[in-house]
Design a protein around this nucleic acid. Structure first.
Lengths: 150, 150
DNA sequence: CTAAATGCAAAATTTTTGCAGTCCC
DNA sequence: GGGACTGCAAAAATTTTGCATTTAG
């Protein structure tokens, strides 16, 4: 998945996406994207910045932040397991899952008891022992889509 | 789910959990927990702080942070859709899911193509339109559990 | 050439910490 | 009473912004 071939393909796609989005293909953007594409560990902005420092000593951390945000806005990369900015909490400890509206960011709980019975792929046994599995559904809530129409 | 009855039950459980964990049941802790238990919107520390301000004018934001972290450490509440502190990114845009080790925090990708065919509960139709669904599996990776043994 | 992107510095936001006083058990 | 907890203030960590300069197309 992270072999040179695949990274190369992603870079190709990346350049196409930039052209389509009218984003300039700068040295920094190319290197930031390449570094993320070959990473196995879902790095943070700061981590990417440090990894790129040898190759691009003049690169600044704020450019990494700005660039990642731009890439995310254009759907070229994803932000992982995060609701923007602040940490969010819940006291509901029974098994449940989340609906997240991509428009308004609202998180709604839902129940799906039969999901407990669904078996995960066997390969996961090689990873370790599983405690729980949760589903995150993303889409547009009715409120937001009716606002868009109206 | 968030009716007075259920909040009351959670408060009862909360007090028991505090006693079991040797945590003192302070006024602030009770109110912070109550506020979170009755919330429908997975609030942030800052949001809880603002909501509690009328009732507890002397409550400080850092107490809210400290308290939520304590509750989380003792498994009384959950942090939602978040990997601690920094935002994390990935360039893998094809459908995949995540394994997260609760010990070391490492995030590993896995494929589960047949999950696409699994139907979500029908009630979700009332929520809005779904774009994608992802699974987050939490547990302990082999590396961490062997370290624990050794 | 020109609009967009970068780097720098500084600010804003979010979270954590040290310490003195307070409160639960 | 004593250790745990809180509030305050200050610091640390993370992310964003304004502006002058540079660069891709």
């Amino acid at each position: 998945m992270m072999d040179a071939e695949s990274v190369h393909g992603k870079l190709k796609d990346f350049e196409d996406a930039c052209r389509k989005a009218n984003l300039k293909i700068t040295h920094q953007r190319l290197e930031i994207f390449r570094e993320l594409a070959k990473a196995l560990d879902h790095p943070s902005a700061e981590t990417l910045y440090m990894r790129l420092h040898k190759k691009l000593p003049t690169l600044s951390l704020d450019t990494v932040y700005r660039t990642l945000t731009t890439f995310e806005d254009f759907g070229m990369i994803s932000r992982v397991e995060t609701v923007k900015s602040q940490a969010r909490f819940e006291a509901e400890m029974s098994e449940h899952h989340h609906l997240i509206c991509s428009k308004c960011g609202k998180i709604t709980d839902f129940e799906w008891t039969s999901f407990r019975e669904v078996d995960l792929p066997n390969e996961i046994d090689h990873w370790g022992s599983v405690n729980k599995k949760n589903v995150i559904v993303r889409g547009i809530c009715n409120k937001c889509s009716s606002l868009e129409q109206g």
